[in-house]
Design a binder for these strands. Structure first.
Lengths: 207, 207
DNA sequence: CTGAATACTTACCAATCGGTAAGGCGTCAA
DNA sequence: TTGACGCCTTACCGATTGGTAAGTATTCAG
């Protein structure tokens, strides 16, 4: 089977442009023509590679899910203590707000949009990630006997504290100005650290 | 000046239908024709009342901002202790996830979308609300000397913990099933309470 | 009874949406 | 050289988008 050289390059270029545009404008707001024109091509070139807008979107999401899984692996392999693993993982997630803000934005959009656009409801790109978080916190001392629901509730609060802030950066910057936002960004990590510690030290059994 | 009777009724009906649809599908995903057909009218009737889709969206957001302000007033008037005021306010916000989930969803969407659709960037529907939160936490013992940035960082973590969970309900329900979600929903409030207490007891000065 | 204003309609518009059909062009195996 | 395939194009499709123009129906002040 002959393989053309620039094919995979174009594909990943499409995926990156699509990630940016879906993140900025959402699934409905981003058109395939606009994504294609970002790399100087027509929308039919995009269709040729991905078949449909929905499939392109699916691949974008799968890509993010994979990267999320890689972050979990990284955090777990770096530390041995369950508490530190979780702290490290949440710290890495917090850092992506700088490097790949589109990633968190897109995950949040998927959270909001997957209801009406749920024909392919079988694919839960985030489920394995959440399950990893649940498994992680249940290995923290005091959390062993917690139920999945309790573990998910706790972990989701910390995730929300991080992600909600991550998607708010442009709004907060323009609402309060850059210099104020910088003080927020400095004050955030230590506060977050304290919040994580407080959460881990308060398993539901000790309520 | 003559006044027609059913005018305001139709207007609020439009606003409510628009709130639901914008919440479900986003600004681009919801069409004015679809919103109008929800009350058996044509899109031109909507245009007649609101002028344009953008203005309709603006009124929807303004309405939510007003309701948010009313919640702040309610929490402050119910309690006298600053800590309890804040706890009460966050508790009320958490409760809206049941009564008016569209509200939190729409606020989050605005957070995500206002960058590309920011021609009327002068209107910050959420700024007064956030300022109220900042002022509130700065009256909590130990927080008086905190900067605005530190106060916003702390408050935004709690807000994120609540709102991120609020927008995730449909996804979590279908991802884990109704019975598991119910255990999450039961475990959430006490954990949240502990998180709020931990945050208030850890002002940035004592880091 | 008359005139104006409100509420809403049908008819229409250009622009854009996602997607199909068909063909041009270059590369490479046979 | 030839044929097939991958990459990408122009041309086109019906459906839908937000919005304008013009008119109808109803109501109400004078």
């Amino acid at each position: 089977m002959p393989k053309a050289r620039p094919s995979s390059d174009t594909r990943t270029a499409f995926l990156e442009a699509a990630t940016t545009q879906f993140s900025d404008k959402g699934f409905y707001g981003a058109s395939i023509a606009s994504i294609a024109s970002d790399l100087g091509l027509t929308k039919q070139a995009l269709i040729h590679h991905f078949g449909s807008k929905e499939q392109l979107y699916g691949e974008v999401l799968q890509r993010i899910a994979d990267q999320l899984g890689a972050v979990v692996v990284e955090a777990v392999s770096e530390e041995s203590d369950p508490s530190r693993q979780l702290e490290r993982l949440l710290g890495l997630l917090f850092d992506t707000r700088r490097v790949r803000p589109e990633q968190t934005v897109l995950i949040t959009r998927e959270l909001l949009d997957n209801r009406p656009r749920a024909q392919k409801a079988g694919t839960w790109y985030l489920k394995s990630f959440l399950n990893a978080l649940i498994a992680l916190i249940k290995r923290v001392p005091g959390w062993e006997s917690a139920s999945d629901g309790q573990a998910l509730a706790a972990v989701y609060q910390l995730l929300g504290a991080i992600n909600y802030y991550a998607i708010s950066e442009p709004t907060l910057t323009r609402m309060f100005g850059k210099q104020v936002y910088r003080t927020v960004d400095e004050a955030f990590p230590p506060q977050l650290q304290a919040l994580i510690a407080a959460c881990l030290e308060n398993p539901p059994s000790a309520r």
